[in-house]
């Protein structure tokens, strides 16, 4: 599964595609869970893939393609959040923080909608760990690489995330907000 150097057989482009494309559904799901907007989420995935392609030669020492891709995507997401904060004054791009109920995919079930509200009640690092481990099935080691923290921190964040989510679902938003302070 390494890049061929001989130029024979499958083209390098095919090689990259065959490694990257299986990761796209998961990257899209993670992006959508963070951004809750189809177009913006796919923009993030596109930026992620472009960056991965342009740095493809740096990938080998990283070894774990999946962790590498999710790390790129999360960092791009955090950068965009930071840029937005620096801009300060609102310019109508609140999609990242103020996430509206995703009526386009509500499935008609209040219960299912609530779980995303619970997700929104978490700070980003808890949201990400919950999504990476609980939804994307990254191992704790992979999640540690994506979040760039030790595994012990992954475990404690995961624990706090699930607790906060549970309390939120039990007690509603105000209880969680009080806890956050």
């Amino acid at each position: 599964m390494r890049q061929p150097d001989d130029g024979g057989g499958a083209s390098p482009l095919d090689e990259i595609a065959s490694l990257l494309e299986p990761q796209i559904p998961g990257l899209r799901r993670y992006a959508w869970a963070l951004l809750r907007d189809d177009e913006t989420a796919d923009d993030l995935v596109q930026d992620t893939l472009e960056r991965a392609i342009s740095r493809w030669h740096q990938r080998r020492q990283d070894g774990d393609l999946r962790a590498w891709l999710f790390a790129i995507q999360r960092n791009l997401f955090l950068n965009s959040l930071r840029q937005r904060r620096q801009r300060g004054q609102q310019v109508g791009v609140e999609t990242l923080d103020q996430v509206a109920a995703p009526d386009g995919h509500a499935d008609g079930s209040a219960g299912l909608k609530d779980i995303l509200t619970g997700l929104d009640a978490l700070p980003e690092e808890q949201r990400s760990v919950l999504l990476l481990v609980g939804v994307e099935d990254l191992s704790y080691e992979q999640a540690a690489r994506v979040l760039d923290v030790p595994i012990g921190t992954v475990m404690s964040r995961l624990s706090r995330a699930r607790e906060r989510m549970r309390r939120f679902m039990e007690g509603g938003r105000s209880a969680v907000l009080r806890r956050i302070k």
Binding site: P25, W32, A33, L130, V135
Partner: peptide, 18 residues
């Protein structure tokens, strides 16, 4: 409860990966 919520989140987001 947490296991149930974990599953609910997976179910809720499954459409995107599909």
């Amino acid at each position: 409860v947490e296991a149930e919520q974990r599953q609910a989140l997976r179910d809720r987001l499954a459409f995107k990966a599909a």
